[in-house]
């Protein structure tokens, strides 16, 4: 399912932060395909394409993908049932707090 060119979402954390205006790799998401709940940072990243594809580390399906157009980024996150802050997570300097 994964090969030696596979990266983690951390490799595109900068693009994710620009697209979502918040640090995203510590955000938790639920895979809409298999139900796995894990940090966005665990998603496998594929970057050798016109856009970027992030796949579930368990089932390999696409969770988040985006491409840059002349007018900005366009994100498809229909492979995520939800995205949110982890419960009981250590506060992050870059992520919004729950308070």
């Amino acid at each position: 399912m994964f090969d030696e060119s596979t990266l983690d979402a951390n490799a595109v954390a900068g693009e994710l932060e620009v697209l979502f205006a918040v640090e995203m790799t510590a955000v938790v998401g639920k895979c809409a395909h298999c139900g796995n709940e894990a940090a966005v940072g665990t998603l496998r990243a594929y970057v050798n394409a016109p856009g970027v594809v992030l796949r579930c580390s368990i089932c390999g399906e696409v969770v988040i993908a985006w491409a840059w157009t002349p007018t900005g980024g366009r994100v498809d996150r229909s492979g995520a049932s939800w995205l949110g802050q982890p419960s009981g997570a250590a506060p992050s300097a870059a992520a919004p707090s729950e308070a």
Binding site: N10, A13, G14, E23, V40, G41, A90, A93, A95
Partner: peptide, 15 residues
């Protein structure tokens, strides 16, 4: 350059 980037692959003593 731009950064610092990332919040998942991080460690600090509190962890």
């Amino acid at each position: 350059v731009r950064g610092p980037i990332g919040g998942y692959f991080v460690w600090e003593p509190a962890l």
